[in-house]
Design a protein around this nucleic acid. Sequence first.
DNA 1: AAAAAAATTTAGATTAGTCTAAAAAAAATT
DNA 2: AATTTTTTTTAGACTAATCTAAATTTTTTT
Lengths: 222, 222
Amino acid sequence: MPLDLSFTEENYLKALYHLSDGSESVNTNAIAEHLQTSPASVNDMIKKLANKSLIGYKKYKGAILLPEGKKSALHIIRKHRLWEVFLVEKLGFKWDEVHEIAEQLEHIKSPLLVERLDQFLGMPAIDPHGDPIPDKDGNIKEVIKACLSDLPIGTKGILVNVSADDPALLKHLDKLEISLGVKIEIKDRVDFDGSISISVEDNNDQFISKDVGKFLMLTVIE
Amino acid sequence: MPLDLSFTEENYLKALYHLSDGSESVNTNAIAEHLQTSPASVNDMIKKLANKSLIGYKKYKGAILLPEGKKSALHIIRKHRLWEVFLVEKLGFKWDEVHEIAEQLEHIKSPLLVERLDQFLGMPAIDPHGDPIPDKDGNIKEVIKACLSDLPIGTKGILVNVSADDPALLKHLDKLEISLGVKIEIKDRVDFDGSISISVEDNNDQFISKDVGKFLMLTVIE
DNA sequence: AAAAAAATTTAGATTAGTCTAAAAAAAATT
DNA sequence: AATTTTTTTTAGACTAATCTAAATTTTTTT
């Protein structure tokens, strides 16, 4: 059932999905930036995908996912996130080590494999970064998240997402014993540099920089 | 440590390994046949791999794996076979459904993944087809495959092939719970008619006729 | 509203892997 | 030993994905 797309085509569709918040059209340059390639290459690929009716495109007006393209993108994201769960839960990888490998595994094509993997993992709802895993029909339950640095003092929440793959950041969080699922309370803010005082799992307060706070997404519980 | 080879280069090295029994040089046409491509393409790739010192090549004299190329080939084969074990043991695939998927998975590149997978699977010695899995240094214990009726009493092996498709035979095997991949031990032989007493998966002994034994190919494991 | 800046598209090349058709070398047959 | 057949190699071309540099369109600024 899934279309026979090239590795590269799949990556473009995925990029388009990630860049289109809601359903706005996406700039050529934004895609080029995201995929670390040239705008000219993006332009070529956009035309190709538009010819296959996977995306909508009008000259100079950017690209937008069409239903078929969105379905494909969600299928790739499903595979990516399931493999991340596998790598962490079954093979003992840290959550900051799995992205690159899942980038490769997400392109494996097999009608049966994904569903068997899903069963094997117990049909998980979220991946190790707290992102929701689309079901096999492409339905995805978006989680309501707010960035830690945008939340007021006194807020309590569960860390559900770290919106970055930078290993340096993830390693830093590990050291602070900040991992997905922990409860975080915002205790105070420093006027001088915007540093944030937080407690993790009701332990002693510690500071994180404003920049780190920007990448921590919480589900507010209180 | 593993070289950064393309998908295609890896497939050529693997083909070369499978086609070179012992270490004879391999024909251009044989490779083309094996990979379902043209001799011209093979010739191009042979030159490329020879330039990288992965294979030896003299015009009109065929190609032969050099140590580095052989090491790469064995690493790919290791990955292929470990993934086959994963698919059968963990995801419940039948042994005849896994080849195509493993052909894709074998190209996933990660220094850690293969070793973690190996651990997860309990460092298996053979894959579901009874073929040996090279260790991480590329050492491979070549296995002996032979017809059950030619093997001595006391031999243990994995059933890797049934060299007939007579439904009557297959039905008979089904009833005896003899299927591909099962462990069989040869317990005894009857002088009178050559019947063979075997145990399947360490269950109670049962008899098969000499004629049935002729069609069962085992990989000897002990 | 014109000029400047930014974004986008086109034109023309490049690389990896492939192909067909023709030429050259090796092997087999007579 | 000469001829035929088979195998291998070369020559030239094609596709997918990419690039740089130049041209064009849109947006922003003045």
